[in-house]
Write a protein that binds this DNA or RNA. Structure first.
Length: 560
RNA sequence: GGCGCCGUGGCCAAGUGGCUAAGGCAUCGGAUUGCAAAUCCGACAUCGGCGGUUCGAAUCCGCCCGGCGCCUCCA
């Protein structure tokens, strides 16, 4: 296994500080506002990283911090007339909901800056004592000039750094010095310290919290590429000057998302003048990015997760809704396969017992051709993940695996009843492998909740299907096709199979649309004096609790 | 100005020295179907441009063109 390290700018073999154990720290949000999708990139990829390392047998501890004290939180609280804590609570709740929706459930520790004040003050005090930091009018600053290695992560030299030192320039010895502790103004939230009432600077809490939970040296530190400088540069400076030893073995930074209104659209090249302002620009709260909750509601968390994982985590991702929908189209083919699995075996694929580790999942293919292919695809998947967590490449293998299993189904006619178990068994084993690997990516972890699940629509659809089946049996294809065509615009698709007809889809207005179709079919039947059919429609609907009322202007339906 | 990233088929995207350049979406054929849908089979790129290193490069080096990021809060 190898991991790209921002510090060395190359992939390095993975070695843990402690045998068998991995400590991961990911910079989480500053909770002054709602999250946007860009905030989810890190959590999603690190969720996979933890899943994968665990799968490979490591004992992983993953920390995501919450920065709940900061200038922006204070400003927001004043603006809204509530406390800083209330602002934080609100946005933490939002953040957690987003994580849950995207299937991020591997985080072990969620420390908050305000709960680690003792540790923060202890580190600052130690830095002052060792001469790496100095107090100035109630503030404490890190003396960048005292750190000979400053700039090693972001590849910068102190003397090449511009900057005017910000508003506190007068209190600093060097313009690049940064605040470890800020003295409190009269009405601001504050904590007692050796330097008077105040609050921590932005970077110090990560040094304190990572030390508290993971130790002075831990394995992987993650965050967005935009945090390399100054945030992580300053973290290294603080921690390493304080402890005199490396802070982190691997610095892993994810690429940033960019908003794009055009990417993903077919034929969108070169024609149109766009407002460059909202085209391709980096996402950020200050530019009004947001609406993650809405996005999740319209697209679904798993689609978004899958969309993010299709691209390698270090790449920039051009993000827009059509692109997510396209990813969703690919996802659906897996769910169709899962239904097929159920038709073949009679069991849900979600009830399979899955291998929990890489070793457990190994397969002895023997002379079985299907299993030989499964083994090969599984190995390719693992090789991709071993190479800097290449989830995009790994997903490609998942598609291949699904195709191979579908082909096996076709070739052996597995959907026909009574197929010999020695043919079904390898298929089940292959399907289990598909889910085993998908679980590493945190997808297909549970059965899709049939959205909304209007029971009545299901009953009505069964009636529609029965009517159509009868029409087909009578070779009345005109009626059969009229039904399919009438239902198509509602987003409902019919699939005829040996065992019967399946339906799927259905937009919000589908129920009324289907009812209108039935009413029309009934009208046609009555016009043709086919009263058996028209009565069947009325009776079956009555069973489902629907009343039809024939009026001069037409027929109306209502739920009884 | 300093530091850095990227440019692979219509779109998205793996691959970073060596078999016929993964996969997804879209499109076009074929099998299958009463017709469809789904599924399977097949078609579809020589890797921004030029030059260099090498037996051999999309993959390494140089230059050029074109996108983008950081240097200020930011995942």
């Amino acid at each position: 296994m190898q991991i790209y390290n921002t510090l060395s700018k190359r992939k390095e073999p993975f070695r843990t500080v402690e045998p068998g154990k991995v400590g991961i720290y990911l910079c989480g949000p500053t909770v002054y506002d709602k999250a946007h999708i860009g905030h989810m990139v890190g959590p999603v990829i690190f969720d996979c990283i933890k899943r994968y390392l665990t799968y490979c047998g490591y004992d992983v501890s993953w920390v995501v911090n919450i920065t709940d004290v900061d200038d922006k939180l204070i400003a927001k609280a004043n603006e809204r007339g509530i406390t800083m804590l209330e602002v934080a609570e609100e946005n933490i709740a939002d953040y957690n909901e987003n994580l849950t929706a995207l299937g991020v459930d591997q985080i072990d520790h969620f420390p908050r800056a305000t709960e680690c004040m003792d540790e923060i003050i202890a580190i600052i005090a130690s830095l002052v004592e060792q001469g790496f930091a100095y107090e100035s009018e109630g503030d404490v600053y890190f003396d960048v000039g005292k750190d000979g290695e400053y700039g090693k992560l972001s590849n910068r030299r102190v003397d090449a750094m511009q900057g005017d030192g910000g508003g506190a320039a007068a209190r600093k010895r060097g313009l690049a010095d940064f605040a470890l502790w800020k003295s409190a103004k009269p009405d601001e939230p504050s904590w007692e310290s050796p330097w008077g009432k105040g609050r921590p600077g932005w970077h110090i809490e990560c040094s304190a919290m990572s030390k508290k939970i993971l130790g002075e040296t831990f394995d992987i530190h993650g965050g967005g590429l935009d945090l390399v400088f100054p945030h992580h540069e300053n973290e290294i400076a603080q921690s390493e000057c304080c402890h005199q030893r490396p802070m982190v073995t691997y610095w892993a930074h994810n690429g940033l998302l960019r908003a794009s209104s055009a990417a993903g659209k077919v034929g969108g090249r070169g024609e149109r003048e766009t407002d460059a302002a909202d085209e391709g620009g980096k996402m950020s709260r200050s530019k009004g990015a947001g609406g993650l909750a809405d996005l999740i509601a319209s697209q679904g968390g798993e689609r978004i997760r899958f969309f993010l994982l299709r691209t390698h985590y270090r790449s920039t991702v051009l993000f827009n809704e059509p692109a997510i929908e396209e990813a969703g189209t690919g996802l659906e083919s897996f769910y169709r396969f899962f239904k097929r699995y159920e038709r073949v075996t009679g069991n849900s694929i979600f009830e399979l017992d899955l291998p929990k580790t890489r070793v457990e999942g190994e397969i002895d293919a023997g002379s079985n051709e299907l299993l030989a292919d499964v083994v090969e695809l599984r190995n390719k998947f693992l090789a991709a993940m071993d190479d800097d967590f290449n989830t995009g490449g790994a997903i490609g293998e998942l598609f291949e695996l699904a195709r191979r299993l579908n082909k096996y189904c076709d070739d052996n006619d597995l959907e026909a009843s009574g197929q010999p178990s020695d043919q079904v068994e390898p298929f089940v084993r292959g399907a289990a492998t598909l889910r085993e690997l998908a679980a590493v990516l945190g997808i297909f972890t549970q059965e899709q909740t049939t959205s909304g699940g209007d029971e009545l629509l299901g009953q009505v659809m069964q009636l529609v299907i029965d009517l159509r089946t009868e029409a087909r049996a009578n070779k009345n294809f005109a009626t059969a096709d009229a039904i399919r065509d009438g239902i198509g615009p509602l987003g409902i698709v019919l699939e005829d199979r040996a065992g019967g007809t399946d339906w799927s889809g259905g937009e919000d207005n589908a129920l009324d649309g289907v009812m209108q179709l039935l009413i029309q079919l009934r009208q046609t039947a009555r016009a043709e004096k086919d009263f058996a059919t028209s009565d069947t429609i009325r009776d079956r609907l009555a069973e489902a609790g629907v009343t039809l009322e024939d009026r001069p202007g037409g027929t109306e339906w209502s739920r009884g």
